[in-house]
Amino acid sequence: MNELIGLIFISLGLAFDVFGCLGLVRLPDVYNRLQAATKCVTLGTASILFGTFLIVGFTAAGFKAILCMLFLLLTSPVAAHAIARGAHRSGVKLWEKSVIDRYKEDKEGEA
């Protein structure tokens, strides 16, 4: 029974991973790509690791999978935040159809 639930988690994670990478190819600028890729790939891989834990059980590999999942859920948003900030400060433009850019307005107001 555990194995069946684990396989369901793994297939869900696979679907999310593929959609995330598709978003990386299709969307128009850095920030949108970051959104799609970070969300989908993080939750997809976390769910693959959780499925691994369910299949393997309480063994060495199972505990390592749980640790890896926690680590991924904690660090991946931080990495995305750092890349977005660095890209904006180094002058990467938003997509030309974007609606508004409050961050740029505020930074120009201060300078």
Binding site: G13, A37, T45, I55, V92
Partner: peptide, 26 residues
Amino acid sequence: PTGADRIVAIDILGIMIVGLCAVLTI
């Protein structure tokens, strides 16, 4: 087109490889 795109893709590639390692474990 820019360096930031490449960095995003490298980050995502790393996370995918962690998933690959998990499947190989089973």
